[in-house]
Write a protein that binds this DNA or RNA. Structure first.
Lengths: 399, 399
DNA sequence: AGATTTAATTCAATTAAGTTGAATATTCAA
DNA sequence: TTGAATATTCAACTTAATTGAATTAAATCT
């Protein structure tokens, strides 16, 4: 993940074809809810016979469930298949300098279990066993005959690799510098592991269970410690060459503006982020370290918080304009570790740029919508990422 | 292209598998130059026998050429295969309001023919026959027993669809509003057609024959009428939901800055673009409408042009920082319809932001490099896009 | 109500394109 | 000169698709 692996382009054979087709079927079932074999055959461009075989295989593994026959006009009513929520589970873990957040989700991405564990050090020797224990507990929470574990998604603070953007107010993990987190976690957990950044994971959660289930292209602005961005474009995750794409917090919105901890001036995250809010409020003698603090202030119509929101909205609106022009998303979603009401207020205050490629006559969605938020967002997203991988073939899309 | 087509995710069968594998083989041959069957089998994860069959097929179609056996240590020396430059050709067309630029390239993307044709109107009824005639002439220029034509890439001014970013100094084509250019061109030319925006096409040209042949992820800043951006991320073209991604010219770099024709203030293209340069120089009583004018002024060390370059470099540097943080590319490439020397000067003047995710200890490439430039860039890129499609499977990448 | 049409699904046979293992050719190294 | 290493081909086999005919059940027609 943090080293640049020259991407291997490989050939296909019968086995990989079947694997691909299984994913294609699961993906269609996810987005349509329920479908019959014949309909699936049409959607996928495969023969009904092939579809029957694939369906039989998936049903045999309990990944899908046969439902009632549904009559739709003439002809034999089609047996409707749906994803089996209990067909599989996935683990999600967010590693922070002083805590581990662990989540378990079912095959639809719905939350089954969450837990927060305090850690004294973020070194691998401490983190790895703690994560192992947390995952074991999560799995035992759902009883003995648990469904297969598809894997574990791990969220760690980026950016990855030795980049000139460290100490940027980032919650750095010590002791992980020259380690390969994926290999280490895979070794300890004994399931397939994927490591991602928080914003991307949260974006996938949004697509799996949140407000982006219908979207193929969107930008997810993630309020974490800093300000991250997860981009899904035509169904694909945008990672960049080194997995560091989406460093929205350090996009300059004001030349020569506020000094940022990264050394530059005018970074978005000095205006619009949890950190920016708490610093602003601290100057007014108010503490707003936790989400609850912010919620309370907002509920009390605190004028200082209102003032911060107004102040933060402009740079954010400008940045959103940039995202629209560069990524041409269907919508921009705001989420993460901020109280939902605060995000709503922020969205209300946005004075969006009125000429970007996203200003279209035929829009159905608002340009900016609120997404899922809360402290577990990233961990749940990490788990959703694993589910996502079982739906999304790394393949043949046809316009 | 300009309507949002819900992307179809389809299954695979034996036929599609072979098609995929052919592309995989061609792609490896393109990036490695020459390879033997066994090596190709290893790279693609296929059996040597399967590779032999695929190679035989491709050789039969004259898309690849068998070369000398090459000894590499022990064992039977492997027959080296290369792409056959004369194996196929592709057409590229750029449609502008008053001209059509037509190009023909060989299977490696090398230029075989270029031509500029003046048109009186940009309406379909005028453009379509003119393009047809231009393409016919291009093809007849290479003689009677010409290789197969893979298709035609068409570059037309974006943005596509009815967006709120029109009249943005854009060279608009009249009469194309509710038309489907792809279908129209396919109908007239009788070959597969792809429609793209100029910046993306130019980016692909850069990857096929320019300075990005080794890159999987890069941003191509295209100086056209305005300022465009083509993004290739992990080998995939970033298009956005409606094909309008990369509208770099209207990214705001200065809040409340210069008034742009789009109605906003502070758009990058009001500072850094051909338009901006000619306006600047016009105020100083100098004309710089053509590339030649700019070349001449630069050769003469014109102080006004130097001043413009200095002035244009800062906003551009800031925008490049944004691109780095959002896309995490291997490099940012500057190219398009600007004299190469001017691009060099501009790059020299760039005072890049010194803390972005692209600032890495282990960089091998400069953060910003100059790419191909010239008036034909977009048309050649359109043709390169067709070549690109025959190399790039829409598929299974494995990290 | 009974016949006909339509659509979903399965059955049986076929086919495309891969894999596997043995055989052959060519070179390097001892 | 002989044996090991590597590339390639030959022949047999396997996987997972396709095709066309048969079966089932609902909707519509007479």
């Amino acid at each position: 993940m943090h080293r640049k692996a020259p991407l291997k382009i490989i050939g296909s054979n019968a086995e990989r074809t079947r694997l691909h087709n299984r994913k294609v079927v699961l993906g269609h079932l996810r987005s349509h809810g329920k479908l019959g074999r014949a309909e699936l055959a049409r959607l996928t461009g495969l023969s009904t016979q092939a579809m029957s075989n694939i369906i039989a295989e998936l049903e045999g593994e309990a990944l899908i469930l046969a439902g009632e026959r549904q009559t739709k006009g003439r002809g034999l009513p089609a047996v409707q298949y749906t994803l089996n929520p209990a067909g599989a589970v996935a683990l999600g873990v967010e590693v922070r300098p002083n805590a581990i957040l662990c989540a378990l989700v079912n095959f639809l991405g719905d939350t089954l279990y969450t837990k927060r564990i305090h850690i004294k050090s973020s070194e691998p020797a401490v983190v790895l066993p703690a994560v192992k224990a947390a995952c074991d507990e999560a799995l035992s929470s759902i009883g003995k005959n648990a469904p297969p574990v598809l894997g574990a998604g791990i969220v760690m603070p980026g950016p990855f690799g030795r980049v000139g953007l460290t100490g940027a107010g980032k919650a750095e993990l010590v002791g992980w510098d020259d380690k390969d987190p994926q290999a280490l976690f895979e070794d300890v957990l004994q399931v397939p592991v994927r490591v991602e950044n928080d914003a991307t994971a949260a974006a996938i959660a949004e697509q799996t269970t949140g407000s982006a289930t219908e979207l193929q292209s969107f930008c997810f602005v993630y309020f974490g410690t800093g300000l991250g961005l997860g981009v899904i474009s035509n169904g694909e995750i945008l990672r960049g060459a080194f997995g560091n794409a989406g460093e929205l917090g350090h996009v300059v919105v004001e030349r020569g503006g506020r000094l940022c901890s990264c050394g530059n001036r005018g970074c978005l995250e000095t205006y619009t982020s949890r950190m920016a809010a708490s610093e602003f409020l601290q100057k007014r003698g108010k503490s707003a370290e936790s989400q609850k603090d912010l919620s309370d202030l907002l509920a009390a119509n605190d004028p200082d918080l209102e003032e911060w929101i107004s102040e933060a909205a402009d740079p954010l609106a400008q940045a959103i304009g940039t995202l629209e022009n560069l990524f041409d998303p269907e919508a921009v979603i705001l989420g993460g570790a901020m109280p939902p009401e605060l995000l709503e207020r922020l969205i209300d205050k946005l004075d969006l740029i009125d000429a970007t490629v996203s200003v279209r006559a035929d829009r159905t969605l608002p340009r900016v919508v609120r997404g899922a938020s809360g402290w577990m967002t990233a961990a749940l997203g990490a788990a959703a990422l694993i589910i996502h991988d079982t739906y999304i073939p790394s393949i043949s899309k046809v316009a």
